[in-house]
Amino acid sequence: MIRLSKETATYTFSAAHPPAIRIQPGETIVFETLDALDDQIHSDEDSASKIDLGHVNAATGPVYVEGAAPGDTLVAEILEIKPWNWGAALIIPGFGFLQDTIPGPYTRVFHVEPDGSMRYGSRVRLPLKPMIGTIGVAPLEPITTLSSGAHGGNLDTTDVKAGCKMYLPVFVEGALFGVGDVHATMGDGEVCGTGVECGAEVTIRLDVRHDMPIERPRLESPTEIMTIASAEGGLEEAIKIALEDMVSWLQREKGLSQEEAYMLVSIAGDVRIGQIVDPAVTVRVAVPRGIFV
């Protein structure tokens, strides 16, 4: 099996990066990923104030997929996420939704127990729920891995986990795929600015669809289909984009009229927050697969 070292990680999604590796469609790669804090935190005593924000959220890659061309769709099937046995959550000054009232700094290191849980003090035990924060392809113009957009990026969406397929629009030859920012667990919103940030080994099969043009990321889980949108204009803008994408998907794939699709999302779908702390906020619209006959 192909392995890609965390030493290939970059801090931007960009067509200017030379490929770390070239693969054929359908091949599987094990990505070694750095923790989002780039190994800057090791104990509760390590201050969140010392974080160098120029070296966070690295994405391992990029991977050049032969035959992927602008207008195609890259399919990233997430087969397995194996997080490190420890991670850290932080409140970083100047970051987080309540930064004006709870500014930090504050650091908490977590260790995975033999039963797969993590202790948070003496009264809370957290289950291990690994997910990918940053996953994307190179856009036409470089963008930091801290942000998100039509190319994917720092989506921080808890549904991006093993057993799911991420669909990403291809903007440049080869797609130039990268992945990183794994969380041992994270809540929707990522309100303080981090989940339990950890390194990991992530196994992904990459393929190309030439018959499925999309404008923004889509996600399929065993139970749901989801559209994902990011917007610097805030939640209302992101929700509108994700909702319009879902309506279009249902029209094309399920043969519904625009009105039927819109109503179906209202009576059977969910609007969920991904994260509300990055330069562009992220939401997804989810519809259960089991309702279709």
Rank of each mutant, 00 (worst) to 15 (best):
T12C: 07
G71P: 09
V196I: 08
G290C: 15
E201G: 13
T8R: 05
K82N: 12
L243V: 14
M166P: 00
L126A: 12
R284C: 13
E113Q: 13
G189L: 02
P142A: 07
T227P: 06
A238L: 08
Q258S: 14
A138T: 02
F95K: 06
C192S: 09
V75M: 15
S266T: 05
G133H: 08
G71K: 06
A76T: 10
R252M: 13
L256W: 11
I267G: 07
T33F: 03
P127H: 02
L235V: 12
L4C: 06
L98C: 14
V182A: 08
P25R: 01
D207R: 12
G116Y: 02
R218F: 13
R209V: 01
P139D: 04
T8Y: 06
S266P: 01
E201W: 04
A238T: 05
C192N: 11
L206I: 09
Q99C: 13
G234F: 04
L53I: 14
V172N: 04
T223M: 15
L155I: 01
V277L: 08
F97Y: 11
I273N: 00
F95V: 10
Y262R: 15
I78V: 15
Q275H: 05
V208T: 04
R108G: 02
P19Q: 05
F97D: 11
D72V: 02
V196P: 02
I291R: 00
P130V: 01
H210F: 06
E113K: 14
S43L: 01
G61F: 08
C198L: 11
S221V: 12
G269W: 01
R284P: 13
I2A: 01
G61C: 06
V281W: 12
A200E: 03
E260K: 03
Q99G: 09
S257F: 10
I23K: 10
S148K: 06
H55D: 05
E66V: 06
E224C: 15
L235Y: 08
D44V: 11
F31N: 03
H55G: 03
